[in-house]
Computed example of a mutant assay.
Amino acid sequence: MFCLIRDGEAAHSLVHSDDLVLAFMDLYPVTLGHVLVVPREHVVGLGEIGDELGARMWSVARRVGQALRSNALDTADTGSGAGGRMRCEGVNLFLADGEAAGQEVFHAHLHVFPRYEGDAFSVHALWQGAERTELDGHAARLRALLP
């Protein structure tokens, strides 16, 4: 679907376009103003995103988040009929890499979720403690595999 959007063959609400990425409104937003930042090149996951592309994705997501935090979508100003005033109070960035991580569309994309008091977005996790020796061992193995 993202390739169809890139090629102008599917409807979308464009937020940003440049030589490396597109940013557009999510058709099924989790929160008001949910934006996807998508590489123009068809890449599936993190392993295919080079440094330049990754930096651009992050930069565009950061700028979109900044615009959202400036309350660009303040419902009192947009006449959206959302009921009451909703001002963006925070932003989450999320990229799922692989099915086990929740990736459903296998074209890499970075979600920009504006956050509002009492919104329905949540991340559930059971934070677990670890021993320092275990963490040091994991860090050493990861360092050895970094490109």
Rank of each mutant, 00 (worst) to 15 (best):
V123R: 04
L73K: 01
G47E: 15
R63D: 14
A61E: 07
M86W: 15
L146P: 04
L146A: 14
G65C: 05
G45P: 03
S59N: 14
V112H: 02
L68R: 03
A139P: 00
L14H: 04
I49N: 02
A96W: 00
S13D: 12
L110D: 01
L145N: 12
R62P: 03
D97F: 03
L110S: 00
D74Q: 10
L53A: 00
G45Y: 02
G81I: 04
F2D: 08
G50C: 01
P147V: 11
E52D: 13
M1R: 15
L53I: 00
A130M: 13
A140R: 11
A67C: 09
D136R: 10
F2P: 15
G137D: 13
H42C: 05
L20T: 08
H124A: 11
G98V: 07
A11K: 10
D19Y: 03
A139F: 03
E9R: 14
L126W: 13
G79S: 03
L93Y: 12
V64D: 03
L142C: 02
H42K: 08
T133W: 06
L135K: 09
H124M: 10
H111P: 12
W58C: 13
P114C: 02
V35M: 00
R69A: 11
V15F: 00
G65Q: 07
A100M: 08
W127H: 14
M1F: 10
D51A: 13
L145V: 09
A100H: 08
A61K: 04
R6G: 06
H124Y: 08
R115N: 06
G8N: 03
V37I: 08
D19G: 13
A125F: 11
H42I: 06
L110T: 02
E9Q: 14
W58G: 12
L27G: 10
E41M: 12
S70N: 15
L68N: 04
R6L: 06
R56M: 05
T133M: 10
R6N: 15
G102N: 06
G90E: 01
L93H: 05
A100Y: 02
M57R: 01
W127P: 15
G84F: 07
L73A: 02
D77E: 15
G79P: 06
M86K: 14
M25W: 03
E48G: 05
L73Y: 01
T78Q: 04
G65E: 03
H138W: 15
L146F: 07
E41K: 14
